[in-house]
Design a protein around this nucleic acid. Structure first.
Length: 388
DNA sequence: TCTGGGGTCCTAGGACCC
DNA sequence: TCTGGGGTCCTAGGACCC
C-alpha cells in the first residue's frame, strides 16, 4: 500500500521573514546576504529574481543587475523563530508525523490523515492557504508515494505550487526532467552522466549500461530506485540532534599574518564552544579547515582521548593542527568544527575515558573527571604558540 | 572585486587487532 | 616461498544540499 508523503518547502524563506518583519519591503527587489566585499546572495525575493538574481551569486553582481537592490544582512534568530512556528503549526494542525529536513522544509507522512478524506488535495491546498494566512509564509508542496518524489514534486512549481507525482505517471512527469534537476546529482556528477548519454531522469531510470553503473558505484542503486519511484517512504520523526558544530569565516582580505590567523581561530573556537555548551554537546574530534587564496581547501582533524567543548582545548588543538599543516601562503578562510558529538555527562561520554586510559583505574579516571584535570588552562603551553 | 556559512554523507587507505 | 582475512577506527577529501 503506497503512502502519501508530502514535502513542504517554504518559498524564498529568509527573504519572506524579512518581509514579515518589514512589510515595506514587499514587492521591492531585495536580497538576504552579505553586503560586504566578499558577500554573496543567500536568498533573493521574487522581485529580485526577475532581474536574474539568484542564490550564491556575489552581491556585487546582483547590484550590477539591479542598482536599487535592497540588501539585508541575515538574521538567523528571526529565521529560526519562524521556522519553529512553521513546524509546530503543521504538527498541531495537520500531522505530528513530520521529518525536519532543513530550516525551511519538511516531509510529512499524511497517509493516515488523508486516508478517509474524500478530497485530499483540497485539504492540502487548504493547509497551504492557512499557512500563508496565519504565518504569512508561502510554501510549495509536493505529494507523492516516496520522499524523493515528494521533494522533486515540491520543486516543480514555485511559489505556492502544489504538484502530485503518481508512480504510474512518472513517464510524463519526472522522467522528462533534465538529469541536472535530480536531487543528489550535482555539478560534478551531472556532466559525467551526460557524457554517458544520460540526459534526463528517465534515461537514468531506464538505464541498462554497465558504464553508468560503474561510474555511480553503490549510489547507482539508490538513484535508480529513486528515479523509478521506489525510494524511502519512511518519515523519521526526531528532534534535531546535530552531528557536528562548526564555525568558519572568510577574511575580508586574504592574509598570512599569524596574529590575524590566531585571532580568528580564537574567535571561531569560542563560538563553537559556546554553541556546544548551549546544546549540551561535547565532541571527541576537532577539525580545522584552511582555504587558501586560490580556493584550495585543506581539512585536518584530530581525535582526542576525552570529548570536550572547552574553548581553550578547542583553540589549542586547532592551533596545533594549523601549525603542523600551514604552507606559507595567503589564506582566504578558516574554520573550526567539533565532531563525534555526544551529550555532555552521558554514559557514552564517561565511558570513552576508559578506552585510552587503560593504565588508570576506574577510580582514578573518576577522580580526574571530578577535578576536570584535562581542561585546565595549564594544559596549554603558551610557548607553543608564536604569540598569545 | 568571482566564489558565504551551515551542515550531512560517502569513499578509500592505513593502522591496528584478532 | 615476502606476507590471509575480517572488523573497526581514524583521517582526508569530495560531493551535495540549503
Amino acid at each position: 500500500m503506497s503512502k502519501i508523503i508530502l514535502h513542504i518547502d517554504l518559498n524564498a524563506f529568509f527573504a519572506a521573514c524579512e518581509e514579515i518583519k518589514d512589510p515595506s519591503l514587499k514587492g521591492k527587489p531585495m536580497i538576504v546576504g552579505g553586503g560586504g566585499r566578499r558577500g554573496i546572495v543567500s536568498t533573493a525575493n521574487y522581485a529580485a529574481r526577475k532581474y536574474g538574481i539568484h542564490s550564491a551569486m556575489p552581491t556585487y553582481k546582483a547590484i550590477q543587475l539591479c542598482p536599487e537592490l535592497i540588501i539585508r544582512e541575515p538574521d538567523f534568530k528571526l529565521y529560526h523563530h519562524y521556522s519553529s512556528l512553521f513546524f509546530n503549526y503543521i504538527k498541531d494542525n495537520f500531522s505530528p508525523l513530520i521529518e525536519v529536513a532543513s530550516v525551511d522544509e519538511c516531509y510529512v507522512d499524511a497517509s493516515e490523515v488523508l486516508q478517509n478524506d474524500p478530497a485530499p488535495l483540497k485539504t492540502i491546498l487548504n493547509l497551504q492557504q492557512t499557512l500563508l494566512k496565519e504565518l504569512g509564509l508561502s510554501c510549495s508542496i509536493g505529494v507523492a508515494p516516496t520522499k524523493f518524489l515528494a521533494k522533486m514534486a515540491s520543486n516543480f512549481k514555485k511559489p505556492l505550487g502544489m504538484t502530485v507525482y503518481r508512480r504510474r505517471e512518472l513517464k510524463n512527469t519526472l522522467w522528462i526532467l533534465p538529469i541536472t534537476e535530480m536531487y543528489g546529482i550535482g555539478k560534478a556528477t551531472a556532466p559525467r552522466l551526460q557524457a554517458l548519454g544520460i540526459k534526463t531522469i528517465g534515461d537514468l531510470a531506464n538505464n541498462k549500461s554497465e558504464d553508468v553503473k560503474n561510474m555511480l558505484g553503490k549510489s547507482y542503486f539508490t538513484f535508480h530506485d529513486w528515479a523509478n519511484g521506489y525510494g524511502s517512504d519512511t518519515v523519521i520523526v526526531d528532534e534535531e540532534d546535530p552531528k557536528s558544530i562548526g564555525n568558519s569565516q572568510t577574511f575580508l582580505f586574504d592574509t598570512d599574518d599569524y596574529d590575524e590567523i590566531t585571532a580568528l581561530f580564537k574567535e571561531l573556537s569560542m563560538s563553537v564552544s559556546k554553541r556546544a555548551e548551549r546544546e549540551n554537546k561535547v565532541g571527541l574530534t576537532i577539525q580545522i579547515v584552511i582555504r587558501y587564496y586560490n580556493f584550495e581547501t585543506v581539512n585536518r582533524s584530530v581525535t582526542l582521548t576525552k570529548p570536550t567543548n572547552k574553548q581553550l582545548t578547542i583553540f589549542y588543538e586547532a592551533m596545533k593542527l594549523f601549525d603542523r599543516n600551514y604552507k606559507d601562503e595567503p589564506i582566504r578562510l578558516l574554520g573550526v568544527t567539533l565532531q563525534n558529538l555526544s551529550d555532555e555527562g552521558s554514559l557514552v561520554e564517561q565511558l570513552s575515558l576508559f578506552d585510552d586510559f587503560t593504565t588508570k583505574s576506574k577510580t582514578e579516571v573518576i577522580m580526574d573527571l571530578l577535578n576536570e584535570e584535562y581542561d585546565k588552562p595549564a594544559f596549554i603551553k603558551l610557548s607553543d604558540m608564536k604569540k598569545e
